[in-house]
Protein backbone atom coordinates (compact mmCIF):
# COMPACT_ATOMS: atom_id res chain seq x y z
CA UNK A 1 0.00 0.00 0.00
CA UNK A 2 1.47 3.32 -1.02
CA UNK A 3 1.81 6.13 1.46
CA UNK A 4 0.61 9.70 0.98
CA UNK A 5 3.66 10.93 2.87
CA UNK A 6 6.70 9.12 4.15
CA UNK A 7 9.57 10.83 5.84
CA UNK A 8 12.82 9.43 7.25
CA UNK A 9 15.23 11.38 9.44
CA UNK A 10 13.96 14.69 8.10
CA UNK A 11 16.01 17.56 9.54
CA UNK A 12 16.13 21.29 9.03
CA UNK A 13 18.56 23.61 10.77
CA UNK A 14 18.67 27.40 10.66
CA UNK A 15 22.25 28.14 11.67
CA UNK A 16 22.70 26.54 15.10
CA UNK A 17 19.00 26.19 15.69
CA UNK A 18 17.60 22.81 14.70
CA UNK A 19 13.94 23.47 13.90
CA UNK A 20 13.16 19.91 12.84
CA UNK A 21 15.35 17.18 14.26
CA UNK A 22 15.42 13.73 12.59
CA UNK A 23 11.70 13.28 12.22
CA UNK A 24 10.44 9.97 10.84
CA UNK A 25 6.80 9.12 10.12
CA UNK A 26 4.39 8.20 7.38
CA UNK A 27 0.83 9.11 6.50
CA UNK A 28 -1.67 6.65 5.01
CA UNK A 29 -3.77 7.59 2.03
CA UNK A 30 -7.16 8.96 3.07
CA UNK A 31 -6.05 9.57 6.63
CA UNK A 32 -6.59 12.73 8.69
CA UNK A 33 -3.12 13.13 10.12
CA UNK A 34 -2.69 15.67 12.90
CA UNK A 35 0.49 17.49 13.75
CA UNK A 36 0.26 18.77 17.30
CA UNK A 37 2.64 20.92 19.27
CA UNK A 38 3.24 24.35 20.72
CA UNK A 39 4.42 27.27 18.58
CA UNK A 40 8.03 26.72 17.58
CA UNK A 41 7.80 22.93 17.82
CA UNK A 42 8.73 22.58 14.14
CA UNK A 43 5.31 21.91 12.66
CA UNK A 44 5.37 24.69 10.10
CA UNK A 45 8.97 23.96 9.12
CA UNK A 46 8.06 20.32 8.48
CA UNK A 47 5.08 21.30 6.34
CA UNK A 48 7.23 23.77 4.40
CA UNK A 49 9.68 20.99 3.61
CA UNK A 50 6.90 18.66 2.50
CA UNK A 51 5.32 21.29 0.25
CA UNK A 52 8.59 22.34 -1.39
CA UNK A 53 8.82 25.77 0.23
CA UNK A 54 11.97 24.84 2.13
CA UNK A 55 14.78 22.42 1.37
CA UNK A 56 15.63 19.86 4.08
CA UNK A 57 19.11 20.00 5.64
CA UNK A 58 19.18 16.21 5.70
CA UNK A 59 16.87 13.25 5.58
CA UNK A 60 14.49 11.78 3.05
CA UNK A 61 10.91 12.49 2.23
CA UNK A 62 8.26 11.55 -0.31
CA UNK A 63 4.90 13.13 -0.93
CA UNK A 64 2.44 11.21 -3.12
CA UNK A 65 5.37 9.11 -4.28
CA UNK A 66 7.63 12.01 -5.31
CA UNK A 67 10.94 12.95 -3.74
CA UNK A 68 10.70 16.26 -1.88
CA UNK A 69 14.29 17.13 -2.80
CA UNK A 70 14.23 16.56 -6.52
CA UNK A 71 10.61 16.40 -7.63
CA UNK A 72 9.01 19.44 -6.05
CA UNK A 73 7.62 20.45 -9.47
CA UNK A 74 5.53 17.27 -9.55
CA UNK A 75 4.57 17.59 -5.91
CA UNK A 76 3.32 21.17 -6.41
CA UNK A 77 0.85 19.97 -9.05
CA UNK A 78 -0.59 17.35 -6.73
CA UNK A 79 -0.94 19.02 -3.35
CA UNK A 80 -3.28 21.55 -1.84
CA UNK A 81 -2.00 23.98 0.76
CA UNK A 82 -3.56 26.45 3.13
CA UNK A 83 -1.61 28.31 5.78
CA UNK A 84 -2.37 30.12 9.00
CA UNK A 85 -1.88 33.39 7.15
CA UNK A 86 -5.08 34.04 5.29
CA UNK A 87 -4.01 33.77 1.67
CA UNK A 88 -6.52 34.99 -0.87
CA UNK A 89 -6.55 38.39 -2.57
CA UNK A 90 -8.80 40.74 -0.63
CA UNK A 91 -9.09 43.10 -3.59
CA UNK A 92 -10.40 40.42 -5.93
CA UNK A 93 -13.96 39.12 -5.90
CA UNK A 94 -14.80 35.60 -4.78
CA UNK A 95 -15.18 34.53 -8.43
CA UNK A 96 -11.92 36.18 -9.45
CA UNK A 97 -10.00 34.45 -6.68
CA UNK A 98 -11.42 31.09 -7.73
CA UNK A 99 -10.59 31.77 -11.40
CA UNK A 100 -7.05 32.83 -10.56
CA UNK A 101 -6.13 29.85 -8.42
CA UNK A 102 -7.86 27.46 -10.83
CA UNK A 103 -5.77 28.99 -13.62
CA UNK A 104 -2.53 28.38 -11.74
CA UNK A 105 -3.39 24.68 -11.68
CA UNK A 106 -4.62 24.74 -15.27
CA UNK A 107 -8.17 23.91 -14.29
CA UNK A 108 -10.24 25.34 -17.13
CA UNK A 109 -13.32 24.95 -19.31
CA UNK A 110 -16.02 22.57 -18.16
CA UNK A 111 -14.00 21.39 -15.21
CA UNK A 112 -13.55 24.96 -13.98
CA UNK A 113 -17.32 25.51 -14.09
CA UNK A 114 -17.90 22.34 -12.06
CA UNK A 115 -15.24 23.09 -9.53
CA UNK A 116 -16.35 26.71 -9.15
CA UNK A 117 -19.90 25.58 -8.39
CA UNK A 118 -18.59 23.02 -5.94
CA UNK A 119 -16.42 25.55 -4.08
CA UNK A 120 -19.17 28.18 -3.95
CA UNK A 121 -21.62 25.64 -2.61
CA UNK A 122 -19.19 24.14 -0.12
CA UNK A 123 -18.22 27.54 1.25
CA UNK A 124 -21.82 28.80 1.12
CA UNK A 125 -20.76 31.81 -0.95
CA UNK A 126 -22.92 31.30 -4.06
CA UNK A 127 -24.90 34.45 -3.25
CA UNK A 128 -21.74 36.44 -2.58
CA UNK A 129 -19.63 35.44 -5.56
CA UNK A 130 -19.36 39.01 -6.87
CA UNK A 131 -18.31 40.45 -3.53
CA UNK A 132 -14.80 41.56 -2.68
CA UNK A 133 -13.12 38.82 -0.72
CA UNK A 134 -11.69 41.36 1.73
CA UNK A 135 -15.20 42.30 2.89
CA UNK A 136 -16.17 38.77 3.91
CA UNK A 137 -16.15 37.61 7.54
CA UNK A 138 -13.07 35.64 8.52
CA UNK A 139 -14.88 32.30 8.78
CA UNK A 140 -16.19 32.65 5.20
CA UNK A 141 -12.80 33.68 3.88
CA UNK A 142 -11.32 30.61 5.48
CA UNK A 143 -13.82 28.29 3.84
CA UNK A 144 -13.16 29.99 0.52
CA UNK A 145 -9.41 29.61 1.03
CA UNK A 146 -9.93 25.92 1.68
CA UNK A 147 -12.02 25.66 -1.46
CA UNK A 148 -9.35 27.41 -3.52
CA UNK A 149 -6.72 25.05 -2.11
CA UNK A 150 -8.59 22.00 -3.45
CA UNK A 151 -9.85 23.39 -6.78
CA UNK A 152 -7.54 21.01 -8.62
CA UNK A 153 -8.72 18.05 -6.49
CA UNK A 154 -5.33 17.20 -4.98
CA UNK A 155 -4.95 13.75 -3.40
CA UNK A 156 -3.41 15.38 -0.32
CA UNK A 157 -4.16 18.65 1.44
CA UNK A 158 -1.75 20.37 3.82
CA UNK A 159 -3.30 22.67 6.38
CA UNK A 160 -0.94 24.72 8.53
CA UNK A 161 -2.89 25.87 11.59
CA UNK A 162 -5.85 26.65 9.38
CA UNK A 163 -8.17 27.71 12.17
CA UNK A 164 -6.00 29.97 14.28
CA UNK A 165 -7.85 33.10 15.26
CA UNK A 166 -11.28 31.77 14.32
CA UNK A 167 -14.24 31.52 16.70
CA UNK A 168 -15.21 28.01 17.90
CA UNK A 169 -18.36 27.79 15.78
CA UNK A 170 -16.50 28.59 12.57
CA UNK A 171 -13.80 26.18 13.63
CA UNK A 172 -16.40 23.43 14.01
CA UNK A 173 -17.84 24.24 10.56
CA UNK A 174 -14.38 24.17 9.09
CA UNK A 175 -13.75 20.71 10.48
CA UNK A 176 -17.03 19.51 8.97
CA UNK A 177 -15.59 20.53 5.60
CA UNK A 178 -12.37 18.70 6.34
CA UNK A 179 -14.35 15.55 7.09
CA UNK A 180 -16.25 15.98 3.83
CA UNK A 181 -12.98 16.12 1.94
CA UNK A 182 -11.57 13.15 3.81
CA UNK A 183 -14.71 11.14 3.02
CA UNK A 184 -14.03 11.73 -0.66
CA UNK A 185 -10.60 10.18 -0.21
CA UNK A 186 -8.40 13.24 0.24
CA UNK A 187 -5.53 12.74 2.65
CA UNK A 188 -5.47 15.55 5.20
CA UNK A 189 -2.26 16.66 6.86
CA UNK A 190 -3.17 19.27 9.45
CA UNK A 191 -1.12 21.06 12.07
CA UNK A 192 -2.69 22.71 15.07
CA UNK A 193 -2.02 23.80 18.59
CA UNK A 194 -5.65 23.42 19.62
CA UNK A 195 -5.88 20.23 21.63
CA UNK A 196 -9.59 19.77 20.96
CA UNK A 197 -8.91 19.87 17.23
CA UNK A 198 -6.36 17.13 17.64
CA UNK A 199 -9.17 14.85 18.85
CA UNK A 200 -10.71 15.01 15.36
CA UNK A 201 -7.67 13.40 13.75
CA UNK A 202 -7.28 9.72 12.92
CA UNK A 203 -3.68 9.76 14.01
CA UNK A 204 -1.62 12.34 15.84
CA UNK A 205 2.03 13.22 15.78
CA UNK A 206 3.15 15.13 18.85
CA UNK A 207 6.01 17.54 18.24
CA UNK A 208 8.13 19.37 20.77
CA UNK A 209 11.34 21.28 20.14
CA UNK A 210 11.71 19.92 16.65
CA UNK A 211 11.35 16.31 17.71
CA UNK A 212 8.56 13.83 17.24
CA UNK A 213 7.74 12.59 20.76
CA UNK A 214 4.74 10.37 20.04
CA UNK A 215 2.66 9.15 17.12
CA UNK A 216 -0.59 7.25 17.53
CA UNK A 217 -4.38 7.39 17.57
CA UNK A 218 -5.69 9.97 20.08
CA UNK A 219 -7.43 7.31 22.19
CA UNK A 220 -4.31 5.15 22.33
CA UNK A 221 -2.21 8.12 23.33
CA UNK A 222 -4.58 8.90 26.18
CA UNK A 223 -4.76 5.33 27.49
CA UNK A 224 -0.98 5.02 27.28
CA UNK A 225 -0.71 7.62 29.96
CA UNK A 226 -0.14 5.57 33.12
CA UNK A 227 -0.34 8.06 35.95
CA UNK A 228 -3.78 9.05 37.22
CA UNK A 229 -4.89 12.65 37.12
CA UNK A 230 -6.93 14.49 39.69
CA UNK A 231 -8.79 17.68 39.07
CA UNK A 232 -8.59 20.04 41.98
CA UNK A 233 -11.08 22.84 42.58
CA UNK A 234 -9.66 25.63 44.70
CA UNK A 235 -9.94 29.41 45.15
CA UNK A 236 -6.39 30.13 44.12
CA UNK A 237 -5.34 27.74 41.38
CA UNK A 238 -1.91 29.17 40.60
CA UNK A 239 -0.93 29.21 44.30
CA UNK A 240 -2.13 25.63 44.73
CA UNK A 241 -0.23 24.46 41.66
CA UNK A 242 2.87 26.16 42.99
CA UNK A 243 2.47 24.67 46.45
CA UNK A 244 2.14 21.17 45.05
CA UNK A 245 5.26 21.22 42.90
CA UNK A 246 7.73 18.73 44.29
CA UNK A 247 5.46 17.57 47.10
CA UNK A 248 5.69 13.81 47.89
CA UNK A 249 3.53 11.66 45.61
CA UNK A 250 2.94 14.56 43.20
CA UNK A 251 4.47 14.24 39.74
CA UNK A 252 3.13 17.36 38.17
CA UNK A 253 0.65 20.10 38.93
CA UNK A 254 -0.49 22.47 36.21
CA UNK A 255 -3.36 24.84 35.58
CA UNK A 256 -6.15 23.46 33.42
CA UNK A 257 -8.70 26.14 32.79
CA UNK A 258 -9.62 27.46 36.24
CA UNK A 259 -8.88 24.13 37.92
CA UNK A 260 -5.58 22.47 38.68
CA UNK A 261 -4.68 19.12 37.12
CA UNK A 262 -2.46 17.11 39.41
CA UNK A 263 -0.61 14.08 38.09
CA UNK A 264 -0.01 11.70 41.00
CA UNK A 265 1.55 8.28 41.50
CA UNK A 266 -1.39 6.87 43.51
CA UNK A 267 -4.88 8.33 43.16
CA UNK A 268 -6.36 7.09 46.43
CA UNK A 269 -3.46 8.17 48.59
CA UNK A 270 -3.26 11.58 46.95
CA UNK A 271 -7.00 12.21 47.27
CA UNK A 272 -6.56 11.68 50.97
CA UNK A 273 -3.38 13.69 51.42
CA UNK A 274 -4.02 16.71 49.19
CA UNK A 275 -6.55 18.68 51.33
CA UNK A 276 -4.30 18.56 54.38
CA UNK A 277 -1.28 19.51 52.37
CA UNK A 278 -2.98 22.55 50.89
CA UNK A 279 -4.64 23.51 54.14
CA UNK A 280 -1.22 23.82 55.74
CA UNK A 281 -0.48 26.48 53.10
CA UNK A 282 -3.75 28.25 53.83
CA UNK A 283 -5.52 27.05 50.68
CA UNK A 284 -9.05 25.62 50.83
CA UNK A 285 -9.97 22.65 48.59
CA UNK A 286 -13.55 22.50 47.25
CA UNK A 287 -13.34 19.20 45.52
CA UNK A 288 -11.11 16.51 44.06
CA UNK A 289 -12.24 14.38 41.11
CA UNK A 290 -10.32 11.87 39.02
CA UNK A 291 -10.36 12.84 35.32
CA UNK A 292 -9.73 11.11 32.02
CA UNK A 293 -6.46 12.47 30.70
CA UNK A 294 -6.88 15.07 27.98
CA UNK A 295 -4.45 15.24 25.09
CA UNK A 296 -2.92 18.23 26.79
CA UNK A 297 -2.19 16.11 29.86
CA UNK A 298 -0.72 13.45 27.61
CA UNK A 299 1.39 16.00 25.90
CA UNK A 300 2.72 17.52 29.11
CA UNK A 301 3.42 14.07 30.54
CA UNK A 302 5.27 12.93 27.41
CA UNK A 303 7.40 16.04 27.38
CA UNK A 304 8.25 15.46 31.04
CA UNK A 305 9.19 11.87 30.33
CA UNK A 306 11.48 13.12 27.60
CA UNK A 307 13.13 15.24 30.26
CA UNK A 308 12.53 18.48 28.43
CA UNK A 309 10.43 21.54 28.89
CA UNK A 310 7.51 22.54 26.74
CA UNK A 311 8.20 25.61 24.75
CA UNK A 312 5.21 27.75 24.21
Amino acid sequence: MSKAVDVTGLTRAFGDFVAVDHVTFDVEEGEIFGFLGPNGAGKTTTIKMLTGLLAPSSGEGHVVGHDIRTESEFIKQRIGYMSQLFSLYGDLTVDENIAFFAGLYEVSGERLEQRREWVLQMSGLTAHRKRMTGELPLGWKQRLALGCAVLHEPPILFLDEPTSGVDPVSRRNFWDLIYTLADRGTTIFVSTHYMEEAEYCHRLALMNRGRLIALDRPATLRSAMAEPILELATDDGPAAAQALQGAPGIIEAAMFGRAVHVVVDDAARATHALPALLKSRGLAVHGITPVRPSLEDVFVSLVRREGGAVIS
Binding site: L53, K76, Q77, L85, S87, L88, Y105, E106
Partner: peptide, 8 residues
Protein backbone atom coordinates in the same frame (compact mmCIF):
# COMPACT_ATOMS: atom_id res chain seq x y z
CA UNK B 1 3.54 31.47 0.00
CA UNK B 2 0.32 30.31 -1.60
CA UNK B 3 1.79 31.07 -5.02
CA UNK B 4 5.04 29.28 -4.22
CA UNK B 5 3.33 26.00 -3.33
CA UNK B 6 1.44 26.20 -6.61
CA UNK B 7 3.05 25.14 -9.89
CA UNK B 8 3.70 28.84 -10.70
Amino acid sequence: EQLMVSPL
